[in-house]
Design a protein around this nucleic acid. Sequence first.
DNA 1: TCATATT
Length: 442
Amino acid sequence: MAESTTTPTNNNNHSAGGGGGGESVKLFVGQVPKHMTEVELITMFKEFSLVDEVNIIKDKTTRTSRGCCFLICPSREEADKAVNACHNKRTLPGASSPLQVKYADGELERLEHKLFVGMLPKNVSDAEVSALFSKYGNIKDLQILRGSQQTSKGCAFLKYETKEQALSALEAINGKHKMEGSSVPLVVKWADTEKERQARRAQKAQSQASGVPNTDPTQQPSLFGALPMGHLPLYNGYGYQAPGTYGLMQYPLPHMQNQPGFHNMVPPVNRGNAVRGLSPDLAPGLGTRSFSPANYIRPGYPSIPGLQYPMSYPGGMINQGSHNSSHATSPTANNNLAASSNVSTSSGIQTEGPPGANLFIYHIPQEFGDPELANAFQTFGRVLSAKVFVDKATGISKCFGFVSYDSPVAAQSAINVMNGYQLGGKKLKVQLKRDNKQNKLY
DNA sequence: TCATATT
């Protein structure tokens, strides 16, 4: 019943000339050829919408493009124009599939202007909360969290129409306003994004796993869940996130192998076992071998522990010899395989082989990384690249991947020998990679 | 189950 606030019908406030009233929007863009510059991208996107900025996303260490970028548009309308004109609609020269243009992670949530309200009285009504917060803007959504018996959990989420409204409510109420019948002031902060909740969950799980006696978050369960860091001194430092920042205090990502590029952390034992399973039956395949000169075991270089091929197994270099492995051996190095095969992609483009030379492989053993995959398929020809897909979040193998050769003949002989080959409990499925990049031109 | 990547 508090509908008498501003009407949203006429809010073209993003065009505030020079005043900067509008809210810019960040888009994520995928399938961007690595060689393109920010200027080139700006020029291209300006054809479809207003553009404030383009940031190419680069690899932290090599500083090379990761094949994607952020695109900052001055308003949601402009962002939508870019999305509608480009997403899945245009393929940049050199890309294998069309542009992916979407709101960046957390962006949609941020645009909801959603606040968390804590320390509400247990018996509070929607109308009371609504009445209070309506003073600062148009409430688009209000949700008081309630438990089993209708009883309030003491907190709520609410969305405003604009960031300014939310911000002014936050500043006016947080830590200052006491609701009727309550002895403590309300807590108002920006609601967490999904990502922040995930991070918190991970952190919580981590701390519980590490033997912390899990003291009593039960006094303020819902509040606890929404606050920046687990336990907080109750009225002390309820700072809210500075406007315009995306939140997230640093959560020390405790996880194991979140490092892209270091998937070789499998314990040597597993590695040995996994590979060992490959040896006996592979012999027939090796019988038809056609070793290229580049495939040989480097003298003095340790081959895979547990691998015993009838003749010298052509483990070793992949990909026209990248410069790695100048070090001979370190006794503790558990990455024997890895060092011998730093599979492409680092050298930039061209991870795909010619048509018919690229394999899709399913049921790859869990513990296989790129190097192990490369090794297993190396006897059939020159491997240009080998990639096992891993879950973005956990770093766990998804058990499928690709191997690319420089010739279709190699790929075919790999299929002949390896398809159906029992490896680590399951049979490999080896087939030609689907090609969605073909007969487009004639 | 087919190269997808969020500074």
